[in-house]
């Protein structure tokens, strides 16, 4: 790589610094700080009783109706672990989101893998059409598509009406965890198929023919040739589905009926809920990021190993 082409990466580096690195640092800073009331004279942290006392003294001095000015008690931003420790209260919600996202990712993989393989093996001209058809739903707004599922799954929605024709149901589909997983699978399936397809299309047909010539049956070809060669696709597909699925909040709101709170809803609540608490919100986001990193490193370690195996 010469100097000129490195120079071309410069705009992206600037972009990354401003919109990725700086926000990450800000999240970390917010997560580890909090605002506390301090004494205006010596700057020590005031307890709640002391704050009350200061307010009462002010009212006594200036009469009943006096408004307490905002700067009566100055606030200071201090370092604290409290926010991060408070996240432990929300662990069950976090685990629940990871669990649902894992199920959704697994279903996406099981559904997407055969499709990607089949598409990669048909005629090139047809492949384009198939990929086009697969991406077509994504031209429609994400919210609209989720909204449509709402009217399909409702108690007197399309699905239950159809089942009713045969005297079945009505069943409870919407407002369950199953509906949330369905929403995730539906919305993120293309993100699984695309990376899988782009890796599989590079598997040379002659490799498979050679394996067959050497007497390998279909299960063997899949296990020893196709699967190892497609691992990079699996890894990137899994991360592209898992990461947005674990942090989603609108799907659980619309299809989960608000009763299946996910970690994304919780973060949303810290910023747009009754109490505006960006510190706790950032702390939850930070912990979520750590969990995602752990999950991703497990998947990635699979990939590294296989790549070595392929090279050898």
């Amino acid at each position: 790589m010469n100097k000129k082409s490195k120079f071309l990466a410069f705009p992206y580096l600037v972009w990354m610094a401003i919109f990725i690195i700086v926000p990450l640092i800000l999240i970390a800073v917010f997560a580890c700080t909090t605002k506390v009331a301090v004494d205006p004279v010596d700057g020590h942290r005031l307890s709640e009783e002391e704050i009350e006392a200061v307010n009462e003294a002010y009212i006594e001095e200036n009469g009943e109706d006096a408004e307490i000015p905002e700067d009566l008690i100055p606030q200071k931003t201090v370092f604290t672990w409290d926010n991060l420790l408070a996240v432990s209260t929300y662990m069950p919600t976090l685990i629940n989101s990871i669990w649902l996202a894992l199920i959704a990712t697994l279903i996406c993989l099981l559904l997407g893998y055969p499709v990607a393989y089949i598409i990669s093996r048909i005629k090139v001209s047809k492949q384009k059409m198939m990929i086009f058809l697969m991406i077509l739903p994504m031209w429609i707004n994400f919210l609209l598509r989720t909204y449509a599922w709402m009217s399909i799954l409702e108690n007197n929605g399309l699905l239950n009406k159809f089942l009713g024709l045969f005297g079945l149901g009505p069943y409870q589909f919407i407002n369950t965890q199953g509906a949330v997983v369905l929403g995730m699978v539906y919305n993120y399936l293309p993100f699984m198929i695309l990376p899988l397809y782009s890796i599989m299309v590079k598997i040379d047909g002659s490799t498979i023919e050679a394996a067959r010539d050497l007497g390998a049956g279909s299960p063997n070809i899949f296990r020893r040739v196709v699967l190892p060669l497609s691992v990079p696709g699996i890894v990137s597909g899994v991360s592209m589905v898992f990461v947005p699925a674990v942090s989603t909040f609108i799907i659980s709101k619309m299809l989960g009926g608000g009763t299946n709170m996910l970690i994304g809803d919780l973060i949303d609540l810290q910023f747009l809920g009754a109490s505006y608490n960006p510190h706790l919100g950032s702390a939850i986001s930070l912990v979520l990021m750590v969990f995602i990193l752990v999950c991703m490193s497990i998947t990635n370690s699979l990939d590294d190993e296989e790549m070595e195996g392929v090279i050898v």
Binding site: T93, N96, Q177, L269, S275, N277
Partner: peptide
């Protein structure tokens, strides 16, 4: 408002997971 939010989160996430899952 913080207390209210805490109660709300507790209500919303009750019933679908228990601490043992952690």
């Amino acid at each position: 408002s913080r207390l209210l939010d805490e109660h709300w989160t507790d209500i919303m996430s009750s019933g679908n997971s228990n601490p043992a899952t952690v």
